[in-house]
Amino acid sequence: MRLWSLHPALLDAKGLVALWREGLLAQAVLAGATRGYRHHPQLVRFRAHPMPLTAIAAYLHAVADEAEARSYRFDRAKLPPREDVTPIEVSEGQLAHEFAHLLRKLEQRDPARAARLSGTAPLPHPLMRVVPGPVAEWEVGR
């Protein structure tokens, strides 16, 4: 499971669809609707949020917004209504780490996209607020 701190616009088609599926799984985990993935490190920041289900819904609405901008059809009926929510902090180090990880994936799947993104600054997901700091403690394989 990878819940990117990056803006969904940076993802290729496969990455965006995977993010939607994984985000829906995260929503089910946070709602207690599944037994698997309960201790997944990607959920730490959502669990720490004062309103975890509202936060994951806001996260997924932004993913659906990007899908609609690309004329994809993601089923928003799977989400609660959009609400205002306090942003989640993401460190500069975490954002840079994820951007480098994404570029490595894109070099394999979509070299043209990787080339376009290379040398640009990573954009955060609309739910994220960038703060100074290193790669997050929860990041697997640090």
Rank of each mutant, 00 (worst) to 15 (best):
residue 1 M to R: 06
residue 64 A to S: 11
residue 4 W to P: 01
residue 47 R to Q: 08
residue 35 R to V: 14
residue 119 G to L: 09
residue 28 A to P: 03
residue 142 R to T: 09
residue 71 S to A: 13
residue 142 R to I: 06
residue 96 A to N: 09
residue 21 R to V: 04
residue 101 H to T: 14
residue 25 L to N: 11
residue 41 P to T: 07
residue 20 W to D: 12
residue 13 A to Y: 00
residue 128 M to G: 10
residue 127 L to A: 11
residue 12 D to L: 00
residue 5 S to R: 09
residue 129 R to M: 07
residue 65 D to M: 03
residue 32 G to K: 03
residue 123 L to A: 15
residue 78 K to S: 12
residue 89 E to M: 04
residue 19 L to E: 04
residue 43 L to K: 05
residue 114 A to D: 08
residue 88 I to T: 13
residue 44 V to C: 08
residue 103 L to H: 03
residue 102 L to C: 08
residue 129 R to N: 09
residue 83 E to N: 05
residue 72 Y to P: 06
residue 49 H to N: 06
residue 19 L to T: 02
residue 106 L to K: 00
residue 36 G to M: 09
residue 127 L to H: 12
residue 95 L to P: 09
residue 13 A to S: 04
residue 76 R to Q: 03
residue 22 E to N: 13
residue 65 D to V: 07
residue 64 A to M: 02
residue 12 D to E: 13
residue 107 E to D: 14
residue 47 R to F: 04
residue 50 P to G: 09
residue 22 E to P: 03
residue 91 S to V: 02
residue 22 E to L: 05
residue 122 P to R: 09
residue 128 M to Q: 04
residue 67 A to V: 02
residue 35 R to C: 13
residue 83 E to I: 05
residue 46 F to S: 14
residue 32 G to A: 06
residue 44 V to L: 10
residue 61 H to A: 10
